[in-house]
Nucleic acid binder design. Structure first.
Lengths: 219, 219
DNA sequence: AAAGCACATATTGTCGACAATATAGAGATT
DNA sequence: AATCTCTATATTGTCGACAATATGTGCTTT
């Protein structure tokens, strides 16, 4: 169950994949830049086969684009891409919230409420540097709480890293601080009331606002 | 644009991937069975590296599950899995229909209407053996018509092959013939009227009915 | 007899080398 | 001068061999 959150690399290809993904998402490897297999294999001190496997996995995350016999490049971010990404995210996370309202155990709901109050303390004390981690954790729990494997996989393996990449590239460390917190609170209330429809609607709005906020930065 | 429909294999790993996917989806390789790398490499006359890459891609389609140092098995189908799959499909294809109503060109809408009338002829003449291909084509066009790359990729690379696999395993060659046709007709009308909300709702119902139909077979 | 341990075996993970392909640049041609 | 062709080079695709790991078998021990 927690396997989605604590990805523990067991194989060398795993480690290389996680490292590369981190480097791309956090901007250490620039969008549009080429991923040379030989270069990376010397850099990370592994064989080319390992790097190839890592790049293949990055491709399925939509973090790199690969052309046969040519190579892989880190995706370039575009305003259209951001809009399309948030369209999908709105739909999927809305669905996750709806399912979570039905499928989360009482204990999981309690933990979500605890997380929220911790979050509240941090916001009150102005510890905005915990923001991103807190926000990611909040969304993660609801996604996992949906108990739908396909949904979980698409969001956590696919969408989320791209979202983070956009945030980093646009220089937005965390989400909108105080307003986002209120939105989180209402979503949790709806889930605690087992009101799936409301939870979905609130989550969709929450993500829509978030998109609008990011779009402002883009222009 | 058409790249999603006409996947042309250029590399040896591509061909192996397509072949394996076909064999799994069409039931030539049974659910739950082990995919031995050495065995497959002799069977398809390619190196183990090629087979490994193909299996990796199958894993990202959720057609096989892999455990490190142990190997890959074809997924086993469960009633819960089917329900979760159709939950996601309902949401995503509903979204696709909504976006298609906005983003399809007039020409694409015309082609969709043409396809539908061809389909109608076939149903009238009782050529139900064209059913599945026609149904798949219908859904494909709307998905591609959404013009959302993420959505297209998730549905066509991920969901659809699993759906087909369930259909084959449950012995349902095509979808429900006559009623499904009417549903298709209404969806196209909504798209032609550029009524995204209605198109989404009708598509969701269409998939819901389809799910109910399959669930009956499961018990 | 059941449980635990050690070892043999088969499978996956990793590696370096070779083959096939794309790209850039020099030279030839109009 | 511009374009085309050919070649050299670098990169990716493929392969077979070796290393590391998991699993099953037989033995030992209680």
């Amino acid at each position: 169950m927690v396997k989605f959150l604590s990805e523990s690399p067991v194989t060398s290809a795993d480690k290389t994949f996680f490292q590369l993904r981190k480097d791309i998402v956090e901007g250490n490897i620039q969008p549009g830049s080429k991923l040379s297999e030989t270069e990376l294999s010397t850099k990370y001190a592994v064989s080319r086969a390992v790097v190839r496997e890592a790049i293949n996995r990055l491709e399925t995350c939509h973090l790199v684009e690969r052309r046969a016999n040519v190579g892989a490049r880190v995706v370039t971010l575009t305003p259209e891409g951001l809009i399309q990404l948030y369209q999908v995210r709105e739909s999927l996370e809305g669905m996750a919230a709806r399912l979570a309202a039905t499928n989360m155990t009482d204990e999981e709901v309690n933990e979500l409420e605890t997380l929220l109050s911790e979050h509240f303390q941090e916001v009150k004390e102005g510890q905005s540097y915990y923001q991103e981690a807190g926000d990611v954790d909040f969304h993660y729990r609801i996604i996992v709480g949906s108990k739908n494997e396909h949904l979980i996989s698409m969001l956590i393996n696919g969408i989320y890293h791209l979202v983070r990449m956009y945030r980093v590239q646009l220089g937005m460390a965390g989400p909108r601080v105080s307003t986002a917190f209120d939105e989180h609170k209402h979503i949790v209330q709806a889930i605690a009331n087992r009101d799936g429809e409301l939870a979905e609607m609130l989550m969709r709005r929450h993500i829509l606002y978030s998109k609008n906020n990011i779009e402002k930065k883009l222009q």
